[in-house]
Structures are given as C-alpha cells and as structure tokens.
C-alpha cells in the first residue's frame, strides 16, 4: 500500500472521520450527547434531509441537480393534510401527496431530457413554481390537521429509534442495494461519468435520468408526508432552502458534482454529520446563527476536499 493509496482511502472516507470528529467534540462538551435518547433523536432529525439526500445523490450521480425538493415536500405535506381535512381517508390523502411529488419529479426529468436544458435551470424554475402551487393550495396559510390520530402514525419506536428513522434507513438501504445490485443502479455511474460512451453502449440515458428525477420527487414527497405527520401541520414555507442542506449533505458525502462518483453510504455520513452538528449545537444552546455559519464553513471545507479528490482521480487516470 503506497502513499497514493493511503491518501486515496483517506480522501474517500473522510466523511466518517469528520463524523467521528464532531461526535467526539460534542460528547466531550455535552453530557447529554451520548445518550441513547439523544442518538435516537439525531437519527430522527436526520431522516428528513436524509430522504431528500437519497434522491439528490441519484440525480447528482447522473451529473444533474434537483433544486425543487424543498418545494415539493411542502406541496406533498399540504396535500396530505389538506385533503384529509376535506374528507378524504388518511391513506388516500397520503397517496395523493406521494403521487403529486412523484409526478413533479417525473415532469422535471422529462423537461430536462426533452429540452436539453440544464437541470439547474429547469429545477430552479420548478423551485419557484412548485412553491407557488403550495400557496395556491394553502392560500398562504398553515394547514392544521383535524384528525389528531394522524400524528400517532409515526409513534412507533424500536428502542430509541423512531419509525421515521427506520423508514429513512430502510429507504437508504433499499436504494443503496439498488445502486449496487440493479442494472439501473449500476448504469447511474456510467451515465454520470461519460454519457456519450454510455449511450453508445446502449444505455438509455434519457429514460435513466427521468427515473432518477422521479425517484427524487417521490422521496421529497415522502419526506413531506413524514414531516406533516410529525408536526401535525403543513406550513406553506416548509422545506425552504432544504435543497441547500441536502446538497451540502451529498457533497460532504463525497459524491462528485460532475457525476459518476458517489455512494449512498457516504451520503448517510454526510447527512449524519449535518444532523450531529445541528443537534450538538442545540444541546450547547448556541444560537441559530452559529449553526448557519458553521454549516456554511463545513461545506466550503468539504468543497476543498472534493477538489482534492478530483485532482487525485485525475492523477490516477493519467498515471
């Protein structure tokens, strides 16, 4: 094992070292940090950004981006609560919320593929427009669930681990399995690394990307539904700039923005780093602004590491 290999391994797994670092840091500073209850808490908190991050990882693996996830989750949450308030059965309302998000994801993907526009522009438009849909539906007001048993849906725990966290980890495991075992998942890497070569080899690149955008929409919707259950309300501004946190988590996890490199396990690392930071800073009673600044700074550091990795990979290719 030579120096390059060591550096490569370090660069590939730095997110776990970062996670260990922040965990040790907060464990030393706060006696409440390393309790089963708090760890369960962190997992629950991480689930929401985490669900978005799964879809975002798939999309970024393809070399695209989805800025619309925050707005989509707000729409699904609003539909889930709004429809049951107007008499729909809970399950139908949830299904409608999931369907709406999935459909929006599909539309994003279809527009990207059909038009050849960069997904940044397409999903930036969607980010503005879907938020508009949320306001159209809610008229700008927070919707409160009338059926109080709705909130009980998630009140299931396995030890300290909440159902929300279990759903997230289940989804993560499922999609990581998809990435490593299915044809679609493996093709994600080929599409992101070299779309032309993939197309020449017979991979249906357009269809592939649409599927990933659709998955991203679905997961955003799922995130919105879980959020609405947990809070019992749907705020029209729910999920604002969550796309930012999501991208931060994915990039922290080492997924390359140009596509072709990344894994969901490492995205989990990125999600956990964010959740631990948030949780730890709150345990220490630091004001909200410190959180924002720390997150931004961590992201810029992650960018530096991302660049370093790109350089290493470039060297690996020419060596």
């Amino acid at each position: 094992m030579n120096g390059t290999t060591v550096r490569r391994l370090a660069a590939d797994h730095y997110v776990w070292m970062l996670l260990a670092l922040v965990c040790v840091f907060f464990a030393l500073l706060s006696p409440h940090f390393l309790t089963a209850f708090n760890i369960g808490n962190v997992l629950t908190q991480s689930a929401f950004i985490g669900l978005l991050a799964i879809g975002m990882t798939l999309v970024i693996l393809n070399g695209e981006i989805d800025l619309s996830v925050g707005a989509t989750l707000a729409l699904s949450a609003a539909l889930a609560i709004g429809l049951q308030n107007s008499g729909w059965p809970t399950s139908a309302a949830i299904a409608a919320g999931l369907l709406a998000g999935t459909a929006l994801g599909f539309i994003n993907g279809a527009v990207v593929v059909a038009s050849g526009m960069h997904s940044f522009v397409v999903t930036l438009g969607a980010l503005i427009g879907i938020r508009g849909l949320v306001f159209v539906y809610t008229k700008g007001n927070a919707l409160l669930v009338e059926d109080f048993t709705y909130a009980d849906l998630l009140e299931v725990h396995v030890g300290p681990v909440s159902l929300t966290a279990i759903i997230f980890l289940g989804m993560l495991a499922f999609f990581q399995w998809l990435l490593s075992a299915s044809r679609h998942g493996r093709e994600a890497y080929a599409v992101g690394d070299n779309p032309e070569a993939a197309r020449d080899a017979g991979v249906k690149v357009g269809r592939h990307k649409i599927i990933n955008f659709t998955i991203s929409g679905f997961l955003a919707a799922l995130c919105g539904i879980l959020l609405s259950i947990r809070l019992g309300t749907a705020e029209p501004q729910a999920g604002r700039i969550w796309e930012l946190w999501t991208i931060i988590a994915v990039v922290l996890g080492g997924t390359r923005l140009q596509g072709g490199v990344g894994s969901l396990w490492k995205t989990l690392g990125g999600v956990l780093v964010l959740a631990v930071l948030q949780n730890g800073l709150r345990l220490l009673n630091t004001p909200n602004h410190v959180e924002l600044i720390v997150m931004g700074v961590i992201l810029m550091i992650a960018l530096g590491i991302d660049r370093l990795m790109t350089l290493l990979r470039a060297r690996e290719r020419t060596a």
């Binding site: 981006i65 940044f120 700039i241 930012l244 991208i247 931060i248 990039v251 923005l257 004001p287 909200n288 602004h289 410190v290 959180e291 924002l292 600044i293 720390v294 997150m295 931004g296 700074v297 992201l299 810029m300 960018l303």
Partner: peptide, 17 residues
C-alpha cells in the same frame, strides 16, 4: 454553485448574528 450556496448560509447566519 456550492460555494455561493454555502455563502448563502454563512451570510444569513452573520445577518442573524
């Protein structure tokens, strides 16, 4: 994209501070 997103967060934090 990422640098200015990070700055979006940092500047918002500074504004709150």
């Amino acid at each position: 994209l990422i640098v200015t997103l990070a700055m979006l967060s940092v500047l918002q934090g500074l504004a709150l501070w």
